[in-house]
Each structure stands twice: as C-alpha cells, then as structure tokens.
Design a protein around this nucleic acid. Structure first.
Lengths: 138, 138
DNA sequence: CGTCAAGTTGAGAACGATTATCAGTACCGC
DNA sequence: GCGGTACTGATAATCGTTCTCAACTTGACG
C-alpha cells in the first residue's frame, strides 16, 4: 500500500515553511512559491500544509483576523508561542505551569478532554524599534 | 451629535445573546432571531454584535473552526473561558497566574504590547455524560 | 526501461463567513 | 410633526478555504 508519495511540491512547501522565520499564512506561502518560479497551485499548498500539520511537522494556529497560520517548529510535541503581530516572528515557549493550571481548571469544572489555546501576541523588539523610529520620522 | 440610537433590533440581539448559555456564532444567533419572527437582517446581527463587543458588553473569540463566537459575559474586564466544544457552554475563569506569566514571558523576550489568548476547550459534564450514554446505546 | 494503478496536481468552481453597498426607514432632538 | 442622520436589510462583493475532476507523476513490478 503506497501511503504517500514524494513530490517536489510538498518538498518546496516544507522548505518555504522552514525558511520563514515565523508563522505564515497559506496564502502568503503560496505567493512566495509563486514568485520563485514554480507554478504550484494554491490547493496544493493548502494540502501540503494540512498534511504537515497532521503529521506534526508543523504547528498551526488562527490569527486574530481569522486566517490559519503555519510554522515549522523545532520543538515537536506540545508547546506554545509568543508571536509578533507585525512580522510573524515566533518564539516557542514552554508553559508547564499553564498546562497544569489548564488541566486543573478543566477538571475543577467537570470538563473532560480539555485542550487549551495559549498564545501571546505582541510586537517583537525589532518591530517595536522600527515603529519607534517611524514615529520619530513623523 | 447623536452617537448611537436604540433600535429594537439591537435590543433583540442583546437579549438573544443573553439567553444563550454560552458562546454562539453570529450565524446561529441570526437563525434564532429569524425563527422567532423578526425579519432581522444578517448584517444587522453582525453590526450589533460588533458593537456589543466593542463597548465591552460581549466577549468574542474564534472557534477552532474559524468562526467568530460571541457571548454576553457577567464579568466585565479581562477574563478567560472554559468552553464546551459540544454545547458552547462557557465558564468564566480568572487566571491571575497566567496573566502574570504571559506578561513576564513577553517581557523576557523583548516583546511589547502583549496580548494573550488563553482559552480551554473541552466537554462539559453534561455533554460528557450524554456522550457516554450514547456510547452505551451503540 | 515500459507499464500500470493509484496518489497528486492545478485551475477553477463552490462554499461559508464576514463585510460593503445603498436606497429606504426609524429614531431623536427640536 | 419635522428634519437630519444613524440604522436597517437585501444583495453583492470579498476573502480564505475546500471541493471537483481531468491530466499528470510517482513508485512498484516486471
């Protein structure tokens, strides 16, 4: 049974995702690959990303604007992110305390099969500096 | 300057939101109001919800499926939720520790203007029980 | 290397949620 | 009641994502 084939498209998506410093949307990833030369299809990018996410090679989350963002993460397994809302830069963070708190809170209220969403959005140092100098320029 | 007018539509949306035990989507809220009799428009529901959320009378969050969900919350000000992914029931929770952790983590990584998303999704006791008896029935 | 079955691809259609448009309406202060 | 203006609602438009399906690749087998 051939479960999955290797195609250059999937490989390119994986590379592009790895090249991106932080979280990127499927749309912008597609745009990037489009620019490079490849006539890769949007649907293929979505499929590849969904596949990567499914097998744990990528993390996905919803931006506050409702887009799905993806990232190739160094840390496999459960972890959270500190994300720059300007450039998308993401820092992987552990939150052992929060995990416990989440589990305890869920249990205390009779909830089972609890999953939690814990992410921090802000401006990274670079973007903060960039914005500060923009302000100065005004 | 008339800033905002009172219309029965906005009031109905507020009521319907209050009647719902937990988070509901704009779509289902519109469906509910539609059933009641009112020929209220979908756009109006969206506008009312956005308004309520803007003035702090309602909380909004994105479901894992990408829909925007709204809820009339008893607690004004910053708080988080424990949400049943089956019936939408939501429990308001305080997470002082998590707030601090979020702030500290952001600061430690040079991030400013940090906001955090902290929500727990699970199955509430009722839904868990309901599902258990369904299982038995099979 | 050629063949073949089945997984993949890509263009575009389809879809669902949300937002914008705009003429008609209802609210509010006078 | 009047007038101005914010609001409404039907519909179109937008945007991200998924589906469809014919054409194409890949990989196993000989």
């Amino acid at each position: 049974m051939v479960v999955q084939r290797n195609t250059w498209q999937r490989e390119r998506v994986r590379e592009a995702l790895a090249d991106a410093r932080g979280f990127v949307s499927a749309q912008s990833l597609h745009a990037t690959l489009r620019d490079e030369n490849t006539g890769i299809g949007l649907a293929t990018v979505y499929r590849a990303l969904a596949g990567l996410a499914a097998q744990g090679d990528a993390d996905s989350l919803q931006s506050p604007e409702g887009e799905s963002l993806y990232r190739a993460c160094a840390t496999r397994g459960h972890h959270h992110h500190l994300i720059c809302r300007s450039c998308g830069l993401a820092v992987e963070i552990e939150a052992t305390d929060v995990e416990q708190w989440a589990r305890a809170t869920a249990a205390a209220n009779g909830f089972i099969e609890a999953e939690h969403v814990v992410d921090i959005f802000g401006l990274c140092a670079s973007c903060a500096a960039a914005r500060a100098s923009e302000r100065d320029a005004d």
